[in-house]
Design a binder for these strands. Structure first.
Lengths: 292, 292
DNA sequence: AGAATCCATAGATGGTGTCTATGATGGATA
DNA sequence: TATCCATCATAGACACCATCTATGGATTCT
């Protein structure tokens, strides 16, 4: 049984960070200083790291304490959100569509634009996420649909859509821009941008490692639009699904790199409210028609 | 002192959800059934809502329980992330640059590309966020710099950069596309896309409300690239800072809507490690030069 | 040297999570 | 209809623990 940090101890932690002092923090959370001291000590034992350097003038965060701070805030935020969700009145109905963050804006925009004629006033909320995030949200029922990667799920779970390959992209002004295919060794001198949410990140890494190529890492970002923009600006190159290619960049195929992906429309995990059923059916039919 | 739900009770809650039974859940979390029963009862009192309907065959989530479920998972997720962050080895040094998510990809790409010649092997991590998120991260020391909105901060906090206006964008094929300025009444029949992280969202809303215009809301998304792509695809129109305008959309000025923003480079809140100081200074100078 | 500040330690105590034992309820079966 | 089974709730006992008061130790300032 893995132990878990206690919320009340995180409260103590945040108070110390904010006040820079155990004594003032204790006042803030309405306990005595020894209570707070023992609590911080307990938290340090729970997480397995010292969180504060103690001096007699003020306390300082350790490196571990610094790392914990944003996470502690996030935990509190989530707890507040939980209480808020419980206290809220019933929400107005929406069609909530999760979109894999590596799907191109143009593809999604075109899909939704062409769906527009069939709209009858229902609003759509679009939520980006990774595969796992979208899956979790479908399970949680905080999403109705998800456009994500199809990995052989049965048709009552996910409608199988089209396939697309992964390609390497460079700026149009790049020396390799006119070529159809390149080898890994052509990229030795190049800078590499890491799309940190890339589904084939480890395959890409292995592809280069297997060929003893170590491209120079320049940037890392979870945001694909930014990654493509940086490629277009000549910062470096990267591997992307083909749908992300636009006129600002050139694509080449990597010899020996044949990864591809199939898209899927993931369906609602439970019955939708009566008022959105019709809309949902129309949306499903439309996606099949456009992206099959 | 506002009470807060206990993590160990959320653990009980999730076990009951997963097993559909207090008795089996108790086995799962290694306590006895009466312990678990009392715990769930305590949690229900903490959050102020009944979470389960009890039958003698199985238990069912109430509406409140259903709402709490995803949040409970998120809380656990955050706790796991906290522990993970603490347990990670020391990270390799980086220049961590926060970028306001409403800054255009092209602007950022161009900036970083032109900075590339001055690189000497240090990697950059780019992290998108809202103003508040970036501010928090600077305070947390989980960011070194942030490119965000300048709101009169002193020069040791934020370097004042250029100003840009907010404009209304429509698809190039839109009837209003050739115009320089339009009135709110020109938009009565239009669909509106809501950029949920727009800094002037309330001003925009007030602008239309003051003129008794209620554009039809079609989509809502926190992702600006998606919003612009949907505009380009003809889904609807929206208000954006001018930097987000590209050749796929047309901008018009709204009569009586004069909001603008000034960008700023927010500086490190504490001394950076010796090895990145030189890089940081070069980055600061470069941004001043390019975006002043 | 004395005072002030601040975190740590020690011991006592009330609160609480947990256990065993038992009760109440409803459904299935003979 | 009576009995059995499954399951959640309640009661009482008890070990654990968060918290308190009191005190100690270290450092800085006057």
């Amino acid at each position: 049984m893995v132990s878990m940090m206690d919320i009340y101890l995180l409260r103590y932690f945040l108070a110390v960070v904010e006040t820079g002092s155990f004594t003032r923090a204790a006042d803030r959370v309405f306990v005595t200083q020894p209570t707070l001291s023992a609590g911080i000590k307990k938290l340090e034992q729970q997480v397995g790291h010292s969180l504060f350097e103690r001096t007699n003038r003020r306390v300082f965060l350790t490196d571990a304490g610094t790392r914990l701070l944003p996470r502690a805030k996030a935990i509190f935020h989530e707890c507040n959100m939980a209480q808020q969700v419980l206290d809220e009145a019933g929400k107005t109905p929406l069609l909530r569509v999760g979109v894999l963050s590596t799907l191109s804006n143009r593809m999604v925009g075109d899909l939704l634009s062409s769906f527009r004629g069939k709209m009858s006033g229902t609003a759509i909320e679009i939520i980006d996420g990774t595969e796992q995030e979208l899956e979790n949200r479908l399970e949680d029922r905080s999403l109705d649909f998800a456009l994500s990667l199809h990995r052989g799920e049965p048709p009552d779970v996910s409608v199988s859509l089209k396939v697309e390959p992964y390609v390497f992209i460079v700026a149009n002004s790049h020396a390799l821009a006119g070529r159809t295919r390149v080898s890994a060794s052509d990229l030795v001198e190049d800078y590499m941008i890491v799309r940190s949410r890339c589904e084939v990140l480890s395959e890409t890494s292995r592809y280069f490692t297997d060929r003893n190529i170590r491209p120079r890492l320049v940037y890392r970002t979870p945001n694909d639009s930014r990654a493509v923009a940086m490629v277009a600006a000549g910062v470096g190159g990267t591997v992307v699904p083909q749908c992300l290619v636009d006129e600002r960049v050139s694509q080449v195929r990597l010899n020996g790199f044949d990864h591809e992906r199939r898209l899927g429309l993931f369906l609602p995990r439970s019955e939708l409210p009566e008022q959105t059923m019709e809309m949902a059916a129309a949306f499903t039919a439309h996606v099949r028609e456009q992206w099959a």
